[in-house]
Amino acid sequence: MPSDRRNELIRLLPRLRRFACGLTGAADQADDLVQISIEKALRNLDSFAVGTRMDAWMFRIIRNTWIDMIRARRNTVAYDTEAADTIIGSDGRTTTEARLHLAEVRRAMQGLPDDQRIVLMLVCVEGMRYREVAEMLDIPEGTVMSRLSRARLALADKLKDTPLRTEKGIDR
């Protein structure tokens, strides 16, 4: 692998990991998902078209890997119940209230279907355009929008009883 592409991949890692966190809901699982996806990507580097966006390419690989995992996963007893309750990372903010509130947001997010979480992460967190997400997922732009809008309304509904909700979410 040419070193410039390797470097680009290294630069993308924080974003890949953030995307994976949105899908898995737990940091350790997100790391596993990113690692498997990196291994896949390195084995299939030929399919990466030079001059196209590597972030979109990697997001697609992560998304496909995740879909494979959940399709295959069965309803077994969690071996490590503690891990299942882990709240992702820390947000680096000082107030406990804000932290609790953001944990609430992540928990609400985990209650949404996978398809909706994927578009939410790509549009709201990654800032991708509807058109780009549609291309990436190979679905019509209208489908991206309807998933996104359902997900947003469901999320807003889940969070409406959260006492700490403010206009802008949290003070900055």
């Binding site: 991949l9 990991r17 953030r18 990113v34 990196i38 990372g89 947000d91 947003r152």
Partner: peptide, 29 residues
């Protein structure tokens, strides 16, 4: 719609990447 966007951005900050992911990139796949 606007609130969900800003909440999600705050809820999923960029964080330091564990060493093993760096190593995975530097490995041969």
């Amino acid at each position: 719609f606007a609130t969900t966007r800003s909440l999600l951005q705050d809820a999923y900050p960029l964080e330091p990447v564990p060493e093993r992911l760096m190593a995975a990139v530097m490995a041969d796949g």
